[in-house]
Amino acid sequence: MTLIQLTTSSSRKIAARLLRMLLRDWRVVFALTVFVAIGCAALVSPFITDTMTATDTGRLLRGPGPGHLLGTDNLGRDIGARLVGGAVVTVQVVAIAVGAALVVGTVLGLLAGYLGGWVDAVVMRTVDGLIAFPLLVLALTIVAALGPGVNNALIAIAVVITPQFARLVRGEVLSLRTRDWVAAARIVGVPTPVLLYRHVLPHLAGTLLVFTALQASTAVVAEGALSFLGLGVQAPDPSWGAMVASGTNYLSSNWALSVFPGLALFLTIAAFNLLADALRDVFDTHRTN
């Protein structure tokens, strides 16, 4: 038992040290800045719903300027306001779709890796089957089956990403399961759920964190692509992907329509990628130390 306590208390110290290291990394600072901006935008957005949906055929396709800082779209709506509104979907994708995939995928991976046998067989064959689909092909097929809309897009994205988590976690569990402390816990009779939660999961935290950041970036791209193709967020709700799509018809008359939401997507994806890189560097150093 002392062994177990020792691991938990020391892991807390390690976490604190890692956090300090991370905050000194420009990539982390950049990512956090982007996340804070998106979060603020998402919080503000309920208060400006009217502005972002108000059409006005008297001010179509205005370029950036006073009154409408980023210009207006093909229905005379304020691009800036819609950009702010689009943040909500991005937050939903990360919090709901990636969150669900993380939880479900991790649980499935833990069970498959630890229990083995038919559980492993069923979970992993399903995972293999789903992973065989190129990501967007599967997401498209699911959305086509369920019908377009933001909720179905979130489901599709969660379904597409879950097997990735399951496969990763299972692989890690397979190598952890034979470790001394797991064996020790099993021998003293710790119930399986507790064992997995207390003694296996914490060792996956670093890897999972990096992987989640990467999957979040994938998820944001997938939502953008679905909305771009018209299968994600529906009018008049704003989504960056859909805004890029509607702007492609007006590239020569008002470039702002495509470019600003495209930039927002780009920055979000870059933030997740850079965060993943930074986290990986930190955990790798930590591991080799």
Partner: peptide, 28 residues
């Protein structure tokens, strides 16, 4: 129908209907 510029028209009608007090949604 999902073909430009039709969705633009539907979105304008939606916006105008919402101003009458109805609650309109567009399905492309």
């Amino acid at each position: 129908r999902r073909r430009d510029p039709d969705p633009t028209i539907a979105e304008l009608v939606q916006s105008e209907l919402n101003q009458t007090g109805l609650s309109a949604s567009v399905e492309v």
